[in-house]
Every structure is written in C-alpha cells, then in structure tokens.
C-alpha cells in the first residue's frame, strides 16, 4: 500500500512543528533537514499571482513519490523520510511542499534533500494553475 503524499490545501506550520516533535524519541538521529516550498507572488505583465491551485494524476504521482523514496533510501544513509505535497488551492506565502529527512549524520541529509526535491520537480505529475488577483490565471511550468 503506497502512502498518499497529498494534503488538501496549505501545509500548516503546526503540522511541520508536530512532525519535528515526533522525532524526539528517535535518538539514533543526529541531523534533520527540511525543505519547504512556498507559493511565490510572481509578477507577470503587471499582474500578481495570489494563489496556486494544484491538481495531479494522483495514482501515478503517489507511485513516483514512492520510487523517489526508495531511491533516496538506497542512495543515502537515512533513518526516515517524509514528503507532503498540497493539492487544491494554496495562497501565496503558504507552504505547498514539505520534505523532511533524518540521518545519523549531517552530510547525508544535505545531499538527500536536494536529490529528493529535484526528482519531485522533474518526475511527479502535479499541475499548477497560477491564479492572479483579478481571477485570471496561467498554467505554471517548472524550470
């Protein structure tokens, strides 16, 4: 059974704080690293992005997240790894991606977080509609 990575709406600071707290009992860990993706208020032709509405091919996306997880565990010495991605509407300034890796030592988590985030950007079928303040929109493309 594959994990469902998607969470409806923004990922709250409380959720992130609780995730960190849950690791206090795992005393083999010596280093955590966290990546937070935040919705940016991009300006396009004088209009400003106010939110992104995410949709996804969820079955395939969860399969890809699973493969990325497996690859990261193979490549790096990790105790644990958590990935959450928003689905639905997330306002600018709110968090839409939360990646959390833990290892006995720091070097592993620096490399692991970059690997995981880049893989997500390139291979996971998530789509984003950038909604402007006047309700018009454009489709976001990862660079």
């Amino acid at each position: 059974m594959k994990k469902n990575v998607f969470k409806e709406g923004a990922i709250s600071s409380q959720f992130i704080a609780d995730s960190i707290a849950k690791h206090q009992s795992k005393t083999g860990i010596g280093a955590h690293n966290i990546f937070l993706g935040q919705v940016r208020a991009d300006e396009v032709n004088v209009k400003v992005v106010s939110a992104i509405e995410y949709t996804a091919y969820e079955e395939m996306a969860n399969q890809k997240f699973h493969e990325i997880r497996e690859a990261a565990f193979d490549k790096f010495d990790l105790n644990c790894m958590h990935i959450y991605h928003s689905i639905g509407k997330v306002n600018t300034g709110e968090i839409c991606l939360f990646v959390f890796v833990s290892s006995p030592r720091r070097k592993e988590v620096f490399s692991a977080i970059e690997f995981i985030v880049e893989e997500i950007k390139a291979h996971v079928p998530v789509f984003g509609k950038e909604i402007f303040e006047d309700e018009s929109y454009q489709w976001k493309v990862n660079k």
Partner: peptide, 28 residues
C-alpha cells in the same frame, strides 16, 4: 503521454488501456 502510469515515447506500442495526457509538471 503515460501508459499504465509510466511515461512512454512516440515509438512505444499501446498495450494498456489506461492512458493519460500530461501537460508540463509544476510540483514543488
């Protein structure tokens, strides 16, 4: 285009019934 949740190239034969058309990704 994805066939059975795997991206395929133009030369790939269609063998499965679940097909998806995927625009550019924007996750993260």
């Amino acid at each position: 285009i994805a066939q059975n949740q795997e991206l395929v190239s133009n030369e790939t034969e269609i063998t499965a019934t679940e097909i998806a058309l995927l625009p550019p990704f924007a996750g993260g």
